[in-house]
Amino acid sequence: MSICELKNVCRTYGSGAGKVEALKHVSLTIEPGEFTVLCGPSGSGKTTLLNQVGLLDVPDEGTLSVDGQLVGGLSSGELSKVRGQKIGFIFQSFNLIPVLTAVENVELALQLAGREGGERVAAEAVLEQVGLAGLGHRRPNELSGGQQQRVAIARALVKKPLLVIADEPTANLDSENGEAVLSTMQRLNREFGTTFVFSSHDAMVVAHARRVVTLRDGAIVSDERRAATS
């Protein structure tokens, strides 16, 4: 069963003169265990497509299903629940809650997934897996960019989601940290089979991906699968 399937999806923003067709009849299937990157120039629709896959947004036309379930008729609350339980997010600007410590940020994801009990243990375990053992008590402003992004990864992964969405995960990091973050994600993909879908125009990220979907003007222009390079 595919993780996510889009059929003929259209998404338009604005109206009248300012109308933008961000996605035009896009169809895409994400299989379990994929390490996929969506790329294209600014305005190509890759972020819009990512939002659809991550259930942050719903299509105007076409169908979208996640884990076999059509999301067209779901209410906002139901979508929230699905996201909380099945989808993990990693943002370009980390978006950690500044008043919570690293471990608390990770625990939060578990609580929002509806899992009570043992959050602390699980959170610390995942932090260790991303190489941040012992730093759980620090607040985001006490961590470097690379460390914050790794907390974000831990947060995304702690609930063992079906799918992890990452929007330009390395954009705010230097190349060394960017490399480190990317390898962590690759390792987790290999070890646990977690599906990753990114949007990026970082060549290094594209090089690491096993599937590259290119978009231009709201449509997919190429969809390349290849063997991992590292």
Partner: peptide, 14 residues
């Protein structure tokens, strides 16, 4: 706004 958006994205209900 973005922080609250993140919470919503992570599954916090309205």
């Amino acid at each position: 706004t973005s922080e609250l958006g993140v919470l919503r994205a992570m599954g916090l209900s309205r």
